[in-house]
């Protein structure tokens, strides 16, 4: 089981990192999701692996699994879920307003406009 879990974490992280290095927003977000899955599984393992053991007090139990990592993972899942939703929304609106879903900003973007965007409600092209 240790080998299975460790390789799952490793492969998911590797795929996630590869996807995050892509140029378009969508693969990057997928990569982030994969890495958060990997870290969730990793957190489980930090409480040692155990099968069929109760996490809370049980008079018949001889041993226990660690309940704390499960609580941590629950928190991490909720946060990662919320964050992914936020990044999808921001990426979508960035794509719709810039008509471009590249994750990097070309150097032109930094000084292409005479008037900065702050006080002009602009939808100008950044590409």
């Amino acid at each position: 089981m240790e080998l299975l879990l460790a390789s799952a974490v490793g492969i998911m992280t590797a795929c996630g990192v590869y996807l995050m290095l892509r140029q378009r927003t969508f693969p990057v977000i997928l990569g982030l999701t994969l890495v958060t899955y990997a870290v969730n599984v990793f957190l489980f393992a930090s409480g040692r692996l155990a099968q069929n053991l109760p996490p809370v007090l049980n008079p018949e139990a001889t041993a226990y699994s660690d309940p704390l990592p499960q609580a941590l993972v629950l928190t991490a899942i909720v946060i990662a879920f919320g964050m992914t939703a936020v990044v999808v929304m921001i990426a979508l609106s960035a794509y719709l307003s810039a008509r471009d879903d590249r994750i990097d900003m070309s150097e032109d973007d930094t000084y292409d406009d005479e008037q900065t965007a702050d006080h002009v409600d602009n939808a100008e092209d950044g590409a």
Binding site: V86, S93, A94, A117, G126
Partner: peptide, 15 residues
């Protein structure tokens, strides 16, 4: 406040 450049910078920041 929005704007294309700010949103794109925002994506980077969030990622």
């Amino acid at each position: 406040g929005g704007g294309a450049r700010r949103l794109r910078a925002g994506v980077q920041y969030v990622v």
